[in-house]
Amino acid sequence: MNFTINGQSVEVEADIRSSLLDLLRNSLGFTGTKKGCDQGACGACTVLVDGERINSCLALAVQYQGRSITTVEGLGSDGALHPLQQAFVEHDGFQCGYCTPGQLCSAIGMAREIERNVPSVVTADLTAASVTVDETELRERMSGNLCRCGAYNGIIEAISETLAETSASQTPASSHERARA
C-alpha cells in the first residue's frame, strides 16, 4: 500500500484488515496517533486526510491508499512546535497527553471546516456567509474528542487563541501542507 504521510511517500505491506490507525502505529511507527476505543467513540485516533479530520480507527487503510495523511508528528516544522501545539502547552490543554494528538489534528481540521463555512448543529443561521466563531461553536465542533482528564477548558482556550492569531487568509495548516500550498 502507498501513502503520503506527513509529506513523505511511504510504501508498506499490511494486513488487508488493518485500520489506518493500526497501520500508522504498528506498521509505520507513527505512534503519536492514539487508540482509545477503536470504534469511533473517542477521537484519540483523529488524523487529517487531505486536510480533513477523520477517525483513523474506523478507516480501513486499504481504502486510503494514495491519500495524503497528516499525523501529529507532521504538525510542527523543523523541530519547532506548531502554534496550536505551543498554545496547548501554554493553556494546559491536556494532562496525561493521550488524547492530545487527536485533539490537535481535530482542531486543525476544524479550522479548515470553519474556513469553508461548514456549519455545526449550534450554528444559528445556516445561511450565513461565514461561521461566527464563539465558545459554543468550538465546544460543539470539538465534541468528537473525549478527554477523560478533563482538559476541555484549556483546549478551547488554546484553540481560541490560535484561531484569533491566525489571519483569515491563513489556515493553521501543518507545515508540509503550508509548504505545498
Binding site: T46, R53, I54, N55, S106, M110, P119
Partner: peptide, 10 residues
Amino acid sequence: LAGASAQIRN
C-alpha cells in the same frame, strides 16, 4: 449535524 462527530461525518 446532530449526528455523531465531525470526524465521522467527514
